[in-house]
Amino acid sequence: MGTVRTVTGPLPPHALRGPVLAHEHLVLDLDRTGEGAAVLGRRHAPAVAAELADLRESFGLGLVVEMTCRGMGRDAPALARLSRASGVAVVAATGWYYESFHTPDIARGSVERLTDVLVREIVEGIGTTGIRPGVIGEVGSHGERPSEPEARVLRAAARAALATGLAVATHARLGRGGAAQLALLTGEGLPPERAAIGHQDLLDDPGAHRELAAAGAYIAFDTVGKENYRSDATRLRLLLALLEAGHADRALLSGDISRHRYLRSEGGQGYGHLFRGFLPGLRAAGVEEGLIDLMTRRNPLRFLTGTDPGPPGPVPYPYPYPGSGSGSGAVPSTATEQEP
């Protein structure tokens, strides 16, 4: 693929010199009870933009991979507005979440039909926005083995990835079922290095992580800071075990902000917890800056594009500011806790 497909236009990987949040939500609606807790909507947008802008200034945040897909309250024009307001590039997603959130078209959709839906959206854009997804995800399952509809979605995701060059990121609820997800994806011919198995920091099983990484898949430690599910101390132990096994080039890191109470403005850990709270623990454990750059920048960019951008360095030619929308392919500006 070669370029990062963002909501404001394509970017070459080497234009992104700062860290990447590999699995986040900036806009979503998972509310099924009316309480509005699992929502990031219009009223939260100023706080979200302010957090991202602060992280750009404080830590050089360059890119957010936004995993809100079909049936999750996705809003591509809102993502473009947030990107411009914050100056942080954003990648939008396509796919279907796990079965409880499937849209009606899944029930009657064959693998072939679902593949066509994804490919059309990737090629033509989301609705009438012209904004094209840059990743297929978070494609979900919720047990040790995907249900029949979830299996069809995973197979369609793999076929669409092969047809378009995008990568596939999964939602493995509570970290379970990653091996079965990868088997379905690779069974359709998808190379394992084009897949990221989600929420593995919620699974206290270093052996399972090693097996997935040895097979070639990315291992997403993407719920960092969600202490009500798993302590960061356990996450740190699991990640260090993966590094000690020689799989630093397979690790992806993020926080999966998916409820408005996680925002800093509401007293939560915020999008910056990875940088403020977790990475200092890695450094204290002796992990060098080169490995941190590998996990927070090079790995996610290689996952998205198939290209390793290499060590950070100067951009060899001027490139539009990621949030400006002034580059080639830019889109006009008019354009109960469930997740882990």
Rank of each mutant, 00 (worst) to 15 (best):
Leu118Gly: 03
Leu118Tyr: 01
Val119Cys: 06
Arg120Glu: 14
Arg120Met: 06
Ile122His: 11
Ile122Thr: 11
Ile122Gly: 14
Glu124Ile: 01
Glu124Trp: 02
Gly125Arg: 02
Ile126Tyr: 11
Gly127Met: 03
Thr128Asn: 15
Thr128His: 15
Ile131Met: 06
Ile131Phe: 03
Arg132Cys: 03
Arg132Trp: 00
Pro133Gly: 04
Val135Arg: 11
Ile136Arg: 12
Ile136Cys: 12
Ile136Thr: 07
Gly137Met: 09
Val139Cys: 10
Val139Tyr: 06
Gly140His: 03
Gly140Arg: 07
Ser141Pro: 01
Ser141Lys: 07
Ser141Trp: 00
His142Asp: 14
His142Thr: 10
Gly143Glu: 04
Gly143Cys: 07
Gly143Arg: 14
Arg145Gln: 12
Pro146Gly: 04
Pro146Ser: 06
Glu150Cys: 09
Arg152Met: 11
Val153Asn: 12
Leu154Arg: 09
Leu154Ile: 05
Ala156Tyr: 12
Ala156Cys: 13
Ala157Pro: 13
Ala158Cys: 09
Ala158Gly: 13
Arg159Phe: 02
Arg159Trp: 00
Ala160Asn: 11
Ala161Ser: 14
Ala163His: 08
Gly165Cys: 05
Leu166Met: 09
Val168Asp: 00
Ala169Gln: 15
Ala169Met: 13
Thr170Val: 05
Thr170Trp: 10
Thr170Met: 08
His171Pro: 11
His171Ala: 06
Ala172Tyr: 01
Ala172Lys: 07
Arg173Ala: 05
Leu174Ile: 02
Leu174Gln: 12
Arg176Ile: 04
Gly177Ala: 03
Gly177Cys: 02
Gly177Glu: 02
Gly177Ile: 02
Gly178His: 09
Gly178Asp: 01
Gly178Met: 10
Gly178Lys: 14
Ala179Arg: 15
Ala180Phe: 01
Ala180Pro: 12
Gln181Thr: 08
Gln181Ser: 11
Leu182Lys: 15
Ala183Pro: 09
Ala183Leu: 09
